[in-house]
Design a protein around this nucleic acid. Structure first.
Lengths: 345, 345
DNA sequence: GCTCCTCACTAAACCGGTTTAGTCGAGGGG
DNA sequence: CCCCTCGACTAAACCGGTTTAGTGAGGAGC
C-alpha cells in the first residue's frame, strides 16, 4: 500500500508526468479541461507530492532553520522563543514550508551547525536571533551563501534584512513612568553585555534618565537568570545610596529581584518599585503584580518568517520595523517613600 | 562556486560515484588504500553529501517531527517543551538527524498536520506529546504508517513505544510531605481532564491521600494557566472548610494560587501550604520559595529521541521508564496553624 | 592449464519529482 | 494550398545521491 507517485496520477489521467506537474503547480501549458481532470484524479488517488523528490529536483529545501545557542535551563524559562517559533510557524504553515530547529548548548559549536546546514542544503535560509555585538554570523552566512534574516531590537545596518522590534520605547516608557511617580534614583539590571538587545535596553534606560534631567544611576550587568537578578538586586540595595526603583531587562530577573528585596524586609512597591520586560504569563499573578513591558513575539516571528521566505525566493525584504512594545502598568510601581532628608536643588 | 557533488569527488579520486558512496558510508567492497584516498579527496574538496539527494535515494527523510498543539500563549509559559526539545536535539545532532517542529493552535488542525507530514514523507517518525485520554493519534499514525513514540506520564499499554516518566511518585512525595507536617485537608488543583498527565497527577494525589488514611479532599480541575490556578484557589478557599494545603499540578498555577491566597491576607505557608510541579527556573526565587517537584525534561527528550531513532531504523524500542521526579523542599510548605476547634477522633 | 571464486570496482538503474527540448495538430494568413 | 505560428502535450534529461547487476583481475585448487 505504497503512496501514489506522480507517475500513478499520470497513468490514471492518461497524460505524461510533466503534464501532471504542470497542472498541480498551476503553470500554463495545460488545457483547462485537462487540468481539471488531472486534479480530480490526483485528489481521488490521494496524491501528495513527495517532499524529498520535490526538494531535490527543485534544488530547494523548502525548509528554514533556527539555531538556538542556549543552555537548556535558560532556554526553558525564556518566554520569547516558544512564542517566536509559534509566530514563525503561522507563516510557514501557509506556504508548505517547515521549520528545522537546532539547539546547541554554547556558541562554540554554533558555527559548525550553520556550516552543516548550508553544506548539506537542509535549509534555504535561517533566522539569526540573540544577535551579539560584533556577531560573526552575518559574515559567516555570507561566506556560506546561506540567506539569513536578522532578529534585532532595533533597525541596524546589516548586510542581511533586519526584522526589528525597537524595545527602547518600552524601556523609556517604564523610566518615564517611574520619573512621573517621583523617583530620582532609578537603577537598571541589564542582560549580558554581549547581546545587542541587552545593550539596547540599557542604552534606552540611560537615555531616558538623561532626557529627564536625572543624574546617572547605577547599572548592573547580569545574565537574564533569576539568580543573576537576585544577586544584582542585592548589589544595588547594598549601595550607600540604594535606588528607589529598578528597571529590569526581563521579567525573570525582576521577579527574583522583587523576592530578594522582600527578603530584606522591603515592601514592593512602597520601598522599591520594580519593572520587568516581556510580560511573562505569570507577571500579572504575582505579589505585587508586575509592571512590565509587553512584546509581541508571535507577530515578530510571523514577520520574520515572511521576510525570510521573501528573501529565499529571491525577493528583497530589506528592513522591517514592527510596532514598539507597550508598558503594562500593574502594582509593582508606586511613588517612592518620602525621604527624611529632602533633596536640595 | 557551487558545492562539490559526489561526481566531483569521484572524478578527483579517479573512481566511480558508487565507490565514493561506499567509501563514505563505511561499507565493504572498497580497498583500504582506495577508501583512504577517497576520504582524503572528499575532505580536501570540502564535500558534504546533499541531504536532499540522500533523502530521496535512501527513501528516508532523516528528520523526525514534533507537532505541538497549543496556543502560543500557554506554550510560552511552559517550561517543558524547550527543555524537552533541547534533549531531543542532543541525541539527534549526534546522528545527523534533525527536528522538524510544527506548532498548531488547536487540536482540530492537528490531524491534518500528521497526515501531511506522513504523505509528503517529510519525517520518518514523530513524537506524541500531551497525550490525551482516548487520544486518536496512535491510531492515526498506525493508519498513516508513520512510526511514533509516545511521551506519557506512566507506562501505559499502547501500540507504539512509550517513553515514560512516572510523575506519580513526585506527587505522592508532596502529599506525604504535607501529611507529615500535619495537614489533613490537602486539596488538588489539576490540569485539564483530557490530558493523561493531568489525570495521572490527580490520581496520585487521591491515592496518596487514601493510603495516608485521609478523607477525600476537594479537587478542582483547571487548565495549567496562571488565571486558572488563581480561580481554582479562590474556589477552594471559599469552601466552608477550606484546605490547609494545596497540591498544584504545575508551578504556574501554584505561583498564581499563592498570590491569590496572599491577596486574601493569608500567609503562605503558615495559613496555607502549597506545592507545585515542574521546578520552573523562578520557583526558587519567589516569596516564599516554592516547594515543587523537579522533572528532567532534557533527559526525557533525549531518551525519547533515542527510542524514536531506534524505531525508525526498524529496531524495537518497546517501553522505557525514566527515573521518577524528585520533590524539592523549599519554604512554601509548613505545619498548619493549630485549629481552634480540635478534631475529635 | 583450466575452472572457479573472491574481491574491488564500474556502469547503470533508481528514488520522484521539475524542467527543457521537441512533437503534433489545429487554426490563421497570404 | 502551403507555410507559419501557437497551444497542448510528450519524452527525456536532470537533481545527487544509493544500490544492484555486472565486469575484470588475481589467486586458489586440482
Amino acid at each position: 500500500m505504497t503512496r501514489p507517485t506522480i507517475a500513478d496520477v499520470a497513468r490514471a489521467a492518461g497524460v505524461s508526468r510533466g503534464a501532471v506537474s504542470f497542472a498541480l503547480n498551476n503553470r500554463p501549458g495545460v488545457a483547462d479541461a485537462t487540468r481539471a481532470r488531472i486534479l480530480a484524479v490526483a485528489a481521488e488517488l490521494g496524491f501528495t507530492p513527495s517532499h524529498r523528490a520535490r526538494a531535490l529536483s527543485s534544488s530547494r529545501a523548502l525548509t528554514v532553520g533556527l539555531v538556538i545557542a542556549r543552555h537548556p535551563e535558560t532556554l526553558s524559562a525564556d518566554p520569547f522563543f516558544p512564542a517566536f517559533i509559534a509566530g514563525i510557524e503561522m507563516t510557514l504553515a501557509e506556504r508548505g514550508q517547515a521549520l528545522l530547529l537546532q539547539v546547541v548548548p554554547d556558541q562554540q559549536s554554533e558555527r559548525r551547525n550553520y556550516e552543516t546546514l548550508a553544506a548539506s542544503g537542509r535549509v534555504d535560509g535561517v533566522f539569526l536571533t540573540d544577535l551579539r555585538v560584533d556577531d560573526p554570523r552575518p559574515d559567516l552566512l555570507d561566506s556560506l551563501g546561506l540567506p539569513g534574516v536578522v532578529i534585532a531590537p532595533a533597525p541596524i545596518a546589516c548586510r542581511w534584512p533586519v526584522v526589528a522590534v525597537d524595545d527602547r520605547p518600552g524601556v523609556v516608557a517604564a523610566v518615564e513612568h517611574l520619573v512621573a511617580l517621583g523617583h530620582r534614583r532609578i537603577a537598571h539590571v541589564a542582560g549580558p553585555r554581549e547581546f545587542v538587545h541587552s545593550r539596547s535596553r540599557q542604552q534606552a534606560w540611560a537615555d531616558a534618565l538623561a532626557s529627564s534631567g536625572l543624574a546617572e544611576s547605577p547599572c548592573v550587568w547580569s545574565d537574564f537568570s533569576p539568580s543573576g537578578g537576585a544577586r544584582a538586586t542585592d548589589e544595588l540595595l547594598d549601595l550607600p545610596e540604594p535606588p528607589t526603583a529598578i528597571v529590569y531587562a526581563n521579567d525573570l530577573m525582576a521577579i527574583a529581584g522583587t523576592s530578594a528585596a522582600q527578603a530584606r524586609g522591603l515592601h514592593v512597591p512602597d520601598d522599591l518599585s520594580v519593572t520587568g520586560f516581556d510580560d511573562t504569563a505569570i507577571a500579572g499573578y504575582l505579589r505585587p503584580p508586575l509592571t512590565t513591558v509587553r512584546t509581541d513575539a508571535v507577530a515578530w516571528g510571523s514577520a520574520a518568517a515572511e521576510c525570510l521566505l521573501e528573501l529565499v525566493d529571491g525577493g528583497t525584504c530589506t528592513q522591517e520595523l514592527l510596532p514598539p512594545p507597550q508598558l503594562v502598568l500593574r502594582d509593582s510601581t508606586a511613588p517612592p517613600r518620602p525621604t527624611t532628608e529632602t533633596d536640595h536643588a
